[in-house]
């Protein structure tokens, strides 16, 4: 009786350890679509032509892209940019030290619209102040990274790190700030796909 009880207890413990290990080792799969809320559905579908901007150009894409509207690059005004999916999520901004809601366009949507080629590996993001950083393109495709155009519903002025800022979904993914701090680029002006 005692021996069978002991064996049963050991079996239970081993099972718990194995299950715990499986849970600990297994990656938690996050559905990107569950991490943001769609504010405005896209009026320009993927693959459709992006019209050349009539107003101020705020973003230019160049490099390994399949769609252009200004020589070898694809220009966006704020209006054309926001004709793609506009989404939002709320997170703790590590630079502002407070919780804010960012609205913007998924960078993966911009890539689809620009028809970024499959072989592209890196995005060189350049800011208005000429700061630049290389971002692995997989980081931007696998996670719902947005190009923010609004903070707490308001447009972002250049003095407030606007008009465009790349925002990483810190609220949904466990991301090391030391790794992503340089990629969290504000006052974005252009992206070169390499």
């Amino acid at each position: 009786m005692g021996r069978s009880l002991h064996t049963g207890f050991r079996l239970l413990m081993v099972t718990m350890v194995v299950l715990g290990s499986l849970v600990a080792c297994g990656e938690t799969t996050i559905d990107p679509a569950s991490t943001y809320k769609v504010i405005t559905p896209a009026s320009i579908k993927a693959g459709e032509a992006i019209p050349a901007p009539n107003s101020e150009v705020i973003l230019s894409l160049s490099g390994l892209i399949g769609q252009t509207n200004n020589a070898q690059q694809l220009d966006f005004s704020m209006e054309t940019l926001e004709q793609l999916d506009v989404v939002e999520y709320t997170l703790e901004d590590p630079f502002l030290g407070r919780t804010v809601t960012y609205q913007g366009v998924l960078i993966s949507s911009i890539f689809e619209a620009a028809k970024v080629t499959e072989g592209a590996k890196t995005v060189k993001a350049v800011a208005l102040n000429d700061y630049s950083v290389d971002i692995p393109i997989d980081e931007l495709r696998t996670m719902p990274v947005i190009l923010a155009t609004r903070i707490d519903g308001e447009r972002m002025a250049v003095a407030d790190k606007g008009p465009l800022e790349i925002v990483f979904p810190y609220h949904a993914y466990k991301l090391e700030h030391e790794k992503y701090v340089g990629m969290w680029i504000w006052q974005l002006r252009s992206m070169e796909i390499k």
Partner: peptide, 20 residues
């Protein structure tokens, strides 16, 4: 104006950094 705003932005960034 752009350069002025960029200076303003950097001042704001520094203020935020010191505050955070």
């Amino acid at each position: 104006v752009l350069r002025r705003n960029l200076v303003g932005s950097r001042i704001n960034v520094l203020s935020d950094f010191y505050r955070v």
